[in-house]
Design a binder for these strands. Structure first.
Lengths: 215, 215
DNA sequence: TTGATAAGCTACGGGAACGTTTCTAATGGG
DNA sequence: CCCATTAGAAACGTTCCCGTAGCTTATCAA
């Protein structure tokens, strides 16, 4: 614990090199997310990030002014971007695809934990809530099933009157609650069950098959 | 700020008295919840609780050994207990009542914030997750719509095959997500919309009236 | 090759919370 | 009324992080 230039901290290559610019930034973002995932946002410190990234506090303060700034920047990078569904004709399939995209994002070991910590902090810090939705969610368009349902409504395949605020949130809500309860991410069967047992009935496309998977 | 016996800290009666036993415990629990609501669990400290409760650290360590112990104890006290629905015959009304109970619990200024912080911490601390569910949720039976749906299924008024894990979670999931997104608790119309637009369709009791409230 | 720039290292004083110890004094039961 | 019990006050050394400063050295472009 005395000679911190030896690659002993855990990850770096046996660094005689000195990283700069984008490379360093990348390492810092990665470290920031790992710190947040392990400790939770309130315990993330500049010193901790610097330690984990194998850099110096000074280098962090040169670019950012708080741990929070770093974490938000890092989060922006890994937030999933939803590819616009091509004018497809498979509502069920597209809903499953949208939830799967969200699920796969959550399954990145850090993503779910970071999100959970951020959202919790945001509950009591309106400024952070604002930044999170403005700089990450809205900036990235991560609205998942809402986008899909809207698309099909626009093409007359779903009754637009059914797309209430409640209905467009069903999928994400169940995914989130599953994550909270189970501390892990649901499998494909559960996602299919969400679509078949909750979303489709709500938009009047009744349960095609009673589908007793995920029981 | 020098004479801390004057009722200057904010709440206590101009205390010459000295609280003990249950009375003191009560004050500590209240302080712990307020601290958690304001700062989030990770920033709750023994010193902070003591300060807010107007007592001494020594008195806290006499009974508890960590801020977390205090918060969990406090949470147990305020977790809502669901009164068993009498053999009623109003599924929709009972579902609304169950969600309203949960909503009203969340609306206690501290409850929602404390929960959110606890759940977030629990995501990365299996021991805490375990304690939270064991000592609070399960111990208190707070399962809300699940209980109602089960009741009606037992009496043959709901198809038991429809009560999948997904379906019994719809209501709570939507309530939680609303809280996260809006940073406040939904009104009665929104709860009715959840029941009419999401839960009832999922159990095959189609939307009685398209009910375009909460639109 | 040289020189400006950016990265890394060390150290600083300040603050907050830790968990414990020692002591004083209020409280309520006997 | 007295005294065992329990609350409260104060101080302790320790640890961690803060934000900044002064310096050395690696890196890249001109």
């Amino acid at each position: 614990m005395s000679d911190r230039n030896r690659s002993e901290g855990g990850e770096g290559p046996p660094r005689a090199r000195r990283r700069r610019g984008a490379e360093l930034e990348e390492a810092v973002y990665t470290a920031a997310l790992e710190e947040t995932a392990e400790l939770g946002l309130p315990r993330v410190t500049m010193e901790g990030i610097a330690r984990r990234a194998g850099t110096a506090k000074t280098s962090l303060y040169r670019r950012w002014s708080s741990p929070e700034d770093i974490v938000l920047g890092a989060l922006y990078r890994i937030h999933p971007v939803e590819q616009p569904s091509p004018g497809a004709d498979d509502l069920r399939g597209d809903l499953i695809a949208a939830l799967t995209l969200m699920r796969d994002a959550m399954v990145q070991p850090v993503y779910g934990l970071v999100m959970s910590s951020l959202l919790s902090e945001a509950q009591r810090r309106p400024d952070l809530h604002e930044r999170l939705y403005a700089e990450v969610f809205d900036a990235r368009g991560g609205r998942f099933t809402r986008t899909v349902l809207q698309h099909y409504a626009d093409h007359g395949r779903v009754d637009p009157a059914r797309l209430t605020p409640v209905v467009v949130d069903i999928g994400e809500a169940l995914l989130i609650k599953y994550g909270i309860d189970a501390m892990e991410v649901p499998d494909d069967d559960y996602i299919a069950a969400i679509v078949d047992q909750a979303i489709l009935p709500a938009i009047g496309h009744g349960p095609q098959q009673p589908a007793d998977s995920a029981d």
